[in-house]
Design a protein around this nucleic acid. Structure first.
Lengths: 189, 189
DNA sequence: AAGACCATGTAACAGGTTACATGATTAT
DNA sequence: ATAATCATGTAACCTGTTACATGGTCTT
């Protein structure tokens, strides 16, 4: 009865590499896939219990040290679940971009307000590109021969491309906003 | 006590145009902002009640016809809430792209599986571009003089740019996957 | 001794989807 | 008549975040 759950699969994915604690997983998620995925402790800890319950992971392990730390290891069934999941088609991902929702109603506020919003977005995307570049550099340097590295870089590259496209759009949109406001002020009527 | 809620603001946004029923709003959402926003009936109907309760909309209206249909109108307080919201900065939007999560663990499956995933994504994005172009054409034709039109087109344009970037990435990634698998088969070891 | 940070966990809540139930109206 | 679709609504459920509580360990 493997649950068709995304968090579960993310956790199992990390456990395929080596046994980890909830804390480790959280750290790994933040450090490696935070540009397209997130998990909170409130999800992680209960889910790990559930994995054990479903026979997809174990914690009755010598590696679970005496006090604080509880280390989980993936089971054969767990690996099979990952394999199944990795072969499933992807459900379309629903996204909700509040910036676009606001811009959609942009005619109800003044141009500077809209422009400021787009400019802020531009800055954020600019920062993201730098972040991605740095992560890429670190990855190449520290794990240059890891067989998973090419896949990690592909996911980074996706973020980079999206951010570049977003910046393009911001520039174009700022120009349009300016044109609109010029029209409204001086122009033909 | 205006709630800091996204659905609420989406609903109010539509109500700024003219009074609408829950059903109307759902239709409008699907027809105009579905590429970056969604609302389900399960959200809409209870939320409309709440708007009335909070004094941001009314339904004690002559427009609410005898039987089925219940039409909501925005109040002054509602308009003020929209204005406040439109001037707020945008929270960073968290996205979770399952395709990237799977590709991140791509080394655990064969290249054709990964490639198929990326190719499917490419096709979906290709279709999206067509869809956006059609919506744009319809909008221009049917509401060519509406003062909100430029803003609507901007949000469409965002989707178009993102989709184009995604296609670029797909092409690049497919090439990389092929190179990886060629390496693995014949190559240096 | 203090502060950072390792580490686990839960409770409360918010946000959201799906599936179902119900019935009116309109078009064929 | 029948089918489509207009139209509202709820219950069950899942997903997810935030805030809090708790205590160990390591460094200065």
């Amino acid at each position: 009865m493997a649950p068709p759950n995304r968090t579960v699969h993310a956790l199992l994915g990390f456990l395929t590499w080596h046994p980890m604690s909830g804390y480790d997983i959280k750290k790994s998620v933040d450090a490696s896939i935070s540009n397209f995925w997130s998990e909170s402790y409130g999800q992680i800890y209960p889910m790990l219990r559930r994995l054990v319950n479903d026979g997809l992971a174990t914690d009755d392990d010598a590696t679970t040290t005496g006090r604080g730390r509880r280390v989980y290891a993936i089971t054969r069934a767990g690996r099979q679940a990952v394999q199944r999941w990795l072969r499933e088609p992807d459900p379309p991902s629903v996204l909700r971009l509040e910036i676009l929702l606001k811009l959609f109603f942009g005619n109800q506020v003044d141009t500077p307000t809209n422009r400021r919003r787009v400019e802020t977005h531009r800055e954020q995307q600019r920062e993201l590109i730098d972040k991605y570049r740095n992560i890429g550099r670190t990855l190449r340097a520290e794990t240059g021969d890891h067989p998973d590295l090419p896949y990690w870089l592909m996911t980074l590259r996706y973020g980079e491309k999206q951010a570049r496209a977003a910046i393009d759009w911001c520039d174009e949109t700022i120009a349009k906003l300016n044109a609109l406001s010029a029209e409204g002020k001086g122009g033909t009527r």
